[in-house]
Design a protein around this nucleic acid. Sequence first.
DNA 1: AAGACGAAAGTGGTTGA
DNA 2: TCAACAACTTTCGTCTT
Length: 312
Amino acid sequence: MSNQKKPKLEELPRCPDCGGNQFVTDPSRGEIICMNCGAVIEEHMIDDGPEWRAFTNEEKGRRARVGSPSTLSLHDKGLSTEIGWEDRDVYGKRLSPQQKATMYRLKRWHTRSRVSSSMDRNLVLAMSELDRLSSQLGLSRNVKETAALIYRSAIERQLIKGRSIEAMIAAAVYAAARLRRVPRTIDEIANNSRVSRKELGRSYRLLVTELQLKIPPPNPVDYIVRFASELRLSGRVTRRAVNLLSKAKAKGLTVGKDPTGLAAAALYIASILEGERRTQREIAETATVTEVTVRNRYKELVKQLDIEVSAF
DNA sequence: AAGACGAAAGTGGTTGA
DNA sequence: TCAACAACTTTCGTCTT
């Protein structure tokens, strides 16, 4: 590749309201929300491409769009596929050094890969399963491509031999979704494939250790947007919930807690506060936790954050 | 009647001796 | 390797709206 990276300073995208540089996106609604103050930054985002029109300079925008659609997830197009060296994730947020290292490693393994016929046969099966799974889960192309990349790397490392393709694909999808910060729960993935939660967990662990994937710790905020849109809650509720969670985080209420449970509780409170009440049951269901967990979390939040109890 | 509540017992995973 | 442990789930009876 002649694309040698020139050292240059790029400005980080900043929230015009509070100057924060952490964002969360809702691809289905086309919104980008500041994780710090909850402001909606961009309302007409197109799909989930790496482009960030409002903040990024022209050059980067051009680069992000160059070339035909990536074909990593087609089993026989791998040889002509290149993995970009873009150092930002789908939100335009800069990748952490760990993530950068991860992507670099994957890229190296990928370019080293040589297609043998048995690998080819494996990939045909694997990629069709990947197609099925990711469309069932409504995953973006980015996530799918990342999963394909992980899977290929796994083959390279001989991790697949003697293990089920389904399990490894499921694990790759789970890892990819988390890597790209659009997490799905283990249950969601397990329910859409024939792999058990347990096996999925095992395979995932294997991938993480063997490929030295650097997966960022789960962030409950990443779940809020998705749950909110599944529950048909307004952007206002979403923002309120995000806000709530960042306060909770500041108070250290979030450590060791199930991120989906936290997201659910924040949404529950926000939905009531904003007059769009949903039942605990509805929320628990879409967050795949129990009502009990929603209750426990929201009790804690209400207590610790001094929320108007009158609303309840 | 539906939703919310909380107690009690059970489960799977992590931690630390 | 095993026991203690925290978080979450399941189940269920009771209270509230």
